[in-house]
Design a protein around this nucleic acid. Structure first.
Lengths: 209, 209
DNA sequence: AGCTTCATGTAATCCGTTACATGATTCC
DNA sequence: GGAATCATGTAACGGATTACATGAAGCT
């Protein structure tokens, strides 16, 4: 339901084309909300039809459309922000899989845990980079946004974005630690299980692989 | 895509009816994966048609169907477990909203943060309770599952489930701390901003509400 | 001339949510 | 007899993913 509000929120920063929104999603913002072009363009049009967005067509050569938020759009965003939302029920692939990792071959389990580790590490880097750019005034969208805001609101606008990205960073750190513990668990289990109580203690033989 | 595997995984524990699966979702398992009956029943039928599940109809009075996993179903599950999955792109409502909380009225922002706090706290309790029941052998589904498994695989089957639920617990704890920091931030911002540099320092007047 | 990037979209399909329908059994 | 729980579903809709289509601008 909230692609709508993700778009409205983004466009309050500064007017943009659908293409640029897609780029933003691919870069920083995509870790807050993500969507492919095939979802962005139709949604933008719907929002424009509903009067929440303004379209400025730029027909000089290119056929591009710059969207900006109307007063009604700003009102709609404010309304959403003021109405409480409950967190959605969890539906995270990795927890489901983790709970049944004993079904996987040990190598596959290890590969999966390492893949998670890599993915969450990468996410952490990106999210920390965004947070830093918010703090040191490098973030282009926030920068634009602040230009249109009275100075006494700069702190809040910045602080909440930093707050959100700090939250994502923490989550990433937590999952990194979690994946590492998973690898340890796997190693521990592999050292013990299929031994029928009387196998020799020659663990040093299985060093490779 | 993984309701399919959630169902297969659950049913490897012990055969069940769609209704019982729904109950499990509402109780413990729902924090790993959740779905309403309207999604469960059709999916079960599809899986049965695909030969991954076995249906035992119990026509004695009730019209109920007990589903169990076939060899093909077990194979399909194993295949999924052995093929790596990348974590899905984030699309979490609360981070999106948090990033733009300056758009909300302070009271609404506070209410929202408190709602998150309450929801994550509740989630933490449930998830910890499940983890405990896994550890002390009270968890009914795991119990059933272990009955059909050789003893030397008990440890792994239990450990991975504990691992998953510990991960969820940590995530919940992290989000609780995050929401609390959000409340502090909000309080801090409310103490300072709209003051045009020469307002009196009589903060004690605003104690109520 | 050909590749990359900019820029916008359609179509099919799938997954998920909400609302509603139905009827049997069990408990009070 | 009436309410709660057991048990299974249908229908409509909306949101998301994947694949494909199109064409201009700019660079090499």
């Amino acid at each position: 339901m909230s692609l709508k509000f993700a778009l409205l929120a983004l466009l309050t920063g500064s007017p943009m084309t659908g293409y640029e929104i897609g780029k933003s999603f691919d870069a920083s913002v995509g870790h807050v909300w993500n969507a492919p072009g095939s979802q962005i363009y139709p949604e933008l049009r719907r929002l424009a039809n509903a009067g929440l967005l303004n379209v400025e067509e730029v027909p000089e050569g290119r056929r591009k459309k710059i969207y900006s938020v109307t007063a009604a759009g700003r009102e709609s965003l404010r309304e959403w922000m003021n109405s409480p939302s409950t967190p959605e029920p969890t539906r995270e692939n990795h927890f489901l899989k983790a709970a049944y990792l004993d079904w996987a071959d040990p190598e596959a389990a290890q590969a999966q845990l390492q893949l998670w580790l890599a993915a969450f590490t990468q996410r952490l880097h990106i999210v920390e980079a965004v947070r830093d750019s918010l703090l040191n005034g490098t973030h282009p969208i926030l920068r634009e946004r602040l230009r249109t805001l009275p100075t006494d609101q700069h702190e809040a606008a910045t602080a909440f974005k930093v707050f959100a990205f700090e939250g994502m960073a923490e989550e990433a750190r937590q999952k990194i630690a979690w994946a590492e513990r998973g690898l340890e668990l796997l190693a521990r289990l592999e050292r013990t299980p299929a031994r029928p109580a009387d196998a020799p203690a020659t663990q040093t033989a299985r060093v490779t692989t």
